[in-house]
Nucleic acid binder design. Structure first.
Lengths: 260, 260
DNA sequence: CGGTATTTTGAGTATCGTCAAGGCCAGTGG
DNA sequence: CCACTGGCCTTGACGATACTCAAAATACCG
């Protein structure tokens, strides 16, 4: 986890968030003025289901989960929010899912009214928000393909690849292990949450983990950290080509291939 | 299907599309000037996988499907585009799925460059585009919940409810049947496509249809038109509350309740 | 060190995917 | 007008997979 004490001031911290670096200094300054850092403990509620989020948020550290509560009380996770992800739907009504902290988390909060006002007169900010939403749309479609796979091992393989590609630059999630020949993933959510995310049960998930390990594709170091040894085998099991398309993930595969 | 011959001119036709009614006359006029109506036959390709769409499109009539081709050649449908839906990702790179006509379809096509230029100086258009994207994001999340259900009957129930709520105002899809006590849905895609959309197989889908019929929830008039008799039972099987939240769907349920 | 929560394992059952065959409908050609 | 053909949907039987329930093992935390 990034040490919060390292953050000298808000402006410099905001600038390093994905996307925000492209903002004008003036815009960034205004944003800074209206921002506050909120902290949440794991499983604390950030925004309730069915009501508009009280503020526009941007994750600074940790993970949030977006989840729907189904009629039978089960909870279906519809996505994760990580460092740099925005939420709170500017311009739009309430979102119909709850947001909770999946781990201890820190969030930049912008009051809705001034944020939307700034949005209206700062095209650069608007661009950032638009890209953020389209990014989320892409990710939602990725999840759809993964979740609609019919084998649990396939869904898990897809999830691991998403972890590799979308979190490639977040080093406390993804590390090179085995002297660079494999990747080491810290899974940020519990088995139970992961099961909900993939639309399955913890028991099936556990078996899937060990099935992948038996095939030599991964190695389970502890319940929440695994090494990926064969990225392409995972892609094959996941069925989705695009999960391999992230540039640095391809690079990592090539590194592994050279050593083989 | 709306008769195209009814469309006197492009501007008045554009204005009636969802969202576009909010545009200024001046913006609408500019849009009109850069638009062309394209027609597609069922299963014709609109945009290829992995390349940026040649134009920004807006569906005028019929259905398009967005689909990914998986490594094993199977096709996974990740969403449908209906009347009023936009596609072609202004500002963004290529989308990583193909778009094909699911039925015969008509599409308004705007050349990318002038469209983006207009977007940059017409805040009202920008708003429409932003809302369109957020709408799509919401729908993608809805699909995720539906598709991740573990029973096929549940997925099908969810699909039928989505048909009822998101297409409520499109009368050639959704009609009141049985003197208003039930809804009649024309399913716009083949069983095969629907199976791909729900992440299952045509055989399982067929069984699910008949299981719902045996429970008295629906009645199959023909393979592509069904009557919904018990909306709440479907919602219960689908598990997702929000699918019932559309205002007019709730109203229809209440009508049904009063008659019971 | 003990208590709790999480994860894993096991056995039994239900569901679904698979393969194969049959039925229905529309379009074609005799 | 009718037989034929091809596509799509349905039905049946079987095997594989995953869910359920229950219990054991492990990790976590004080």
């Amino acid at each position: 986890m990034h040490r919060f004490s390292d953050v000298r001031n808000i402006a410099s911290s905001l600038r390093h968030l994905r996307g925000f670096g492209a903002l004008d200094d003036a815009t960034l300054e205004e944003l800074t003025a209206m921002s506050r850092l909120r902290r949440y403990r794991a499983s604390q509620v950030v925004s309730h289901d069915g009501e508009p989020c009280a503020f526009i948020g941007c994750v600074h550290d940790g993970f949030l989960r977006m989840q729907k509560t189904l009629v039978d009380g089960r909870q279906q996770i519809v996505g994760l929010l990580v460092e740099g992800d925005m939420f709170g739907q500017a311009f739009s009504g309430p979102h119909h899912f709850a947001i909770e902290a999946a781990t201890d988390a820190e969030v930049w909060a912008f009051d809705r009214a001034p944020f939307e006002a700034l949005l209206a007169r700062a095209p650069d900010l608007e661009r950032v928000v638009l890209l953020s939403i389209m990014n989320e749309l892409d990710r939602a479609r990725d999840w759809m393909v993964i979740v609609s796979g019919q084998r649990v091992t396939g869904k898990l393989a897809g999830f691991l690849l998403v972890m590799c590609s979308t979190f490639a630059e977040i080093d406390h999630i993804l590390k090179k292990g085995c002297d660079g020949t494999c990747l080491e993933i810290s899974i940020p959510i519990s088995r139970n949450d992961l099961a909900h995310l993939l639309g399955t049960r913890p028991e099936s998930l556990s078996r899937a983990f060990h099935a992948l390990q038996d095939d030599g594709d991964i190695r389970i170091l502890s319940p929440d950290v695994v090494q990926v040894h064969d990225v392409e085998a995972l892609a094959c099991k996941a069925g989705d080509d695009d999960l391999l398309s992230s540039a640095n993930l391809r690079a990592l595969v090539q590194v592994a291939a050279r050593r083989a």
